[in-house]
C-alpha cells in the first residue's frame, strides 16, 4: 500500500510562545486507513489537523520545522487551496465553517473555487448531499439547521471537492446524541464505502475502539503512542497518565485483570467483552 500522508519530524510553535505546540512528530498513513487521534485538551490535536493542508503555519504564523506531504504535495511548497484538492479539513465548530447563504451554495463553494465545470459541480453537489443524507436541503439556510445537520453539510462541502483525505476535528463534541450518531455513521461510510483516508480527532473512545484501524495518542505536543485500538486501549497506565478515558469495558477489564482474572487480550467492544466474560463464567 502506498502512503498518502507522510509527516516527518514536525515541530511547531505558535507566534509569541516558547513552548512548542507540536514536538517532533512523525508518522505515515497508507491510503484508505481510518486513523483516530486522541489526547487531552491542549495536547496539540487541532494544531496537528491544521498541518495537513498547511493552515499551520501559513495562516497562524509561527516557526515550523519538519515536513508534511499529502498525496505527494509538500505543504511548504503548495498553497492551502492547492492542498485543499487533496485534504478536506472539517474544523471543530460547524457553525463557523458554514458561511454561504444556502446549503447548495455552501457545497458548491469549494468546487467553484477549484474551477470545476458546472456540470461536475451539479453532479458532486448531488452526490455529496445524498451521501450525507440531506437531499432536499439545497435551499435551506445552513445556520438554521440542527448541529448534526450542519456538521454533515460541512462534510459534504469538503467531500464535493473530491479529496483523498478527510480530516475531522472533534466533529461531534457539541452535538446531541442523534446528531453524533448520524455524523459518526457518515464518517464510517466515508472510509468503508468511499475508501477515503480518514483522520478523526475525537474523545469518543467507544466509537474509536469499534471503527478505527489505528489510534495515535498525542500528549503535550508529542506522539506518545501509535498502534491498533487494541494495542492502545490495553495500555491502562499510559492512557491514564495522558488523561484519556478508555471505553468502560476496558476499564472493567483492567480491574478484573488486577484481581487475577485470566484476561490475555483486553476486550475493547461490548461484543468482545460479552464473549470473554460469558466464557469466563461458564469456564
Amino acid at each position: 500500500m502506498q502512503n498518502i500522508i507522510e509527516v516527518a519530524n514536525i515541530t511547531y510553535a505558535y507566534p509569541r510562545t516558547d513552548i512548542p505546540a507540536l514536538n517532533n512528530i512523525s508518522f505515515s498513513v497508507p491510503q484508505g486507513q481510518f486513523v483516530a487521534i486522541i489526547g487531552p485538551t491542549g495536547a496539540g490535536k487541532s494544531t496537528l489537523c491544521y498541518c495537513f493542508n498547511g493552515a499551520v503555519p501559513r495562516l497562524f504564523g509561527g516557526e515550523m520545522s519538519g515536513s508534511v506531504v499529502v498525496a505527494g504535495k509538500d505543504t511548504y511548497e503548495n498553497e492551502i487551496p492547492v492542498m485543499a484538492q487533496h485534504v478536506g479539513l472539517v474544523v471543530q465548530n460547524a457553525r463557523n465553517q458554514l458561511f454561504n447563504v444556502n446549503v447548495q451554495c455552501e457545497i458548491a463553494f469549494g468546487c467553484e473555487n477549484l474551477g470545476f465545470p458546472r456540470q461536475k459541480i451539479i453532479q458532486n453537489l448531488h452526490d455529496a448531499l445524498t451521501f450525507v443524507g440531506l437531499q432536499g436541503y439545497e435551499n435551506r439556510q445552513p445556520t438554521a439547521l440542527s448541529g448534526g445537520q450542519q456538521q454533515r453539510v460541512a462534510i459534504a462541502c469538503v467531500l464535493a471537492m473530491e479529496p483523498d483525505v478527510l480530516v475531522l476535528d472533534e466533529p461531534t463534541s457539541e452535538l446531541d446524541p442523534i446528531g453524533s450518531e448520524q455524523v459518526m455513521e457518515t464518517i464510517t461510510r466515508l472510509n468503508r464505502s468511499l475508501g477515503k483516508t480518514v483522520i478523526l480527532v475525537s474523545h469518543d473512545t467507544e466509537f474509536i475502539a469499534q471503527f478505527a484501524d489505528r489510534v495515535l495518542v498525542i500528549n503535550d505536543g508529542s506522539l506518545v503512542l501509535d498502534g491498533s485500538p487494541r494495542e492502545v486501549f490495553s495500555k491502562a497506565d499510559l492512557l491514564s497518565s495522558c488523561r484519556i478515558r478508555p471505553p468502560q469495558v476496558c476499564q472493567l477489564s483492567y480491574e478484573l485483570r488486577k484481581k487475577g482474572f485470566p484476561i490475555t487480550d483486553i476486550p475493547i467492544t461490548i461484543d468482545e467483552a460479552v464473549t470473554l466474560y460469558e466464557g469466563l463464567q461458564h469456564g
Binding site: 479539513l89 451554495c105 463553494f109 473555487n113 474551477g115
Partner: peptide, 14 residues
C-alpha cells in the same frame, strides 16, 4: 482557505 477560497484558478459558478 480549506475550501480553496482564493485559489489561483479561474473560478466557476454553479
Amino acid at each position: 482557505s480549506s475550501r480553496a477560497f482564493g485559489a489561483p484558478i479561474q473560478r466557476t459558478f454553479l
